[in-house]
């Protein structure tokens, strides 16, 4: 996993609440056998609509999604996170995330930044008035920033310490466990010889 310190990219205002994982990626797109390529299924039902935000050229290259509350509810499919990442998103900003989605995001390296509902509103307004404007999510200082001058938006976001540490270090679960490699090797050395194996030297 790539370490995540700070990211600045085009913000996408998704003015919807309760975006469940079926809307993020419908079940028919789950037949793939890879962890990549799910971008074509991202928000599939909505992308058929020309006026949908990602269909507008200014937002098409978005990397920071700003969504309404209760983002990622429903089925626990990890594909929802992969689809967002495969499309190019590095961070999702919302006033509230479903627990499983937040957990899956942290594991895959997608930043789920929880902010006050008012901040979401201001970001939406800003991004709609200035299509293609960027948003910065700074994980080190736990702040989101957008705009300049008197209209500038700057506020803090919530993320638990453990997930923040993992993202900053670029550690996934496997990476953390491999950090205990010496313990694993020591355990392996003590396993009795009669334990079964599927392959024999």
């Amino acid at each position: 996993m790539e370490p995540f310190t700070t990211h600045t990219g085009v913000g996408v205002p998704l003015r919807r609440s309760n975006v469940d994982t079926d809307q993020i990626i419908p079940a028919v797109y789950l037949k793939r056998v890879t962890r990549t390529g799910f971008e074509d299924g991202l928000f599939a039902a909505w992308r058929g609509d020309e006026s949908f935000v990602l269909n507008q050229p200014e937002y098409a290259a978005g990397t920071v999604l700003v969504a309404g509350p209760d983002f990622g509810t429903g089925s626990s499919r990890e594909h929802a996170v992969w689809a967002l990442q495969n499309y190019g998103f590095k961070a999702v900003i919302s006033a509230r995330f479903a627990d499983i989605f937040r957990g899956n995001s942290g594991k895959s390296g997608l930043l789920a930044a929880q902010v006050d509902e008012k901040v979401v509103q201001r970001l939406w307004d800003h991004l709609e008035q200035h299509p293609g404007a960027t948003v910065t999510v700074d994980l080190e200082s736990r702040t989101v920033r957008a705009g300049e001058g008197p209209e500038a938006i700057e506020d803090s976001f919530d993320i638990d310490d453990y997930t923040r540490w993992r993202l900053l270090e670029g550690l996934d679960d496997i990476g953390i466990t491999l950090g205990h490699d010496a313990d694993i090797a020591a355990y392996e050395a003590t396993r009795p010889s009669w334990k079964p194996a599927t392959q024999h030297a």
Binding site: E78, K107, D173, I174, T177, L178, I184, E188
Partner: peptide, 14 residues
Amino acid sequence: TSEVEHVLATQTLM
């Protein structure tokens, strides 16, 4: 599936 990956890579599980 993510645990399958974890076991493949580390032969352990948390």
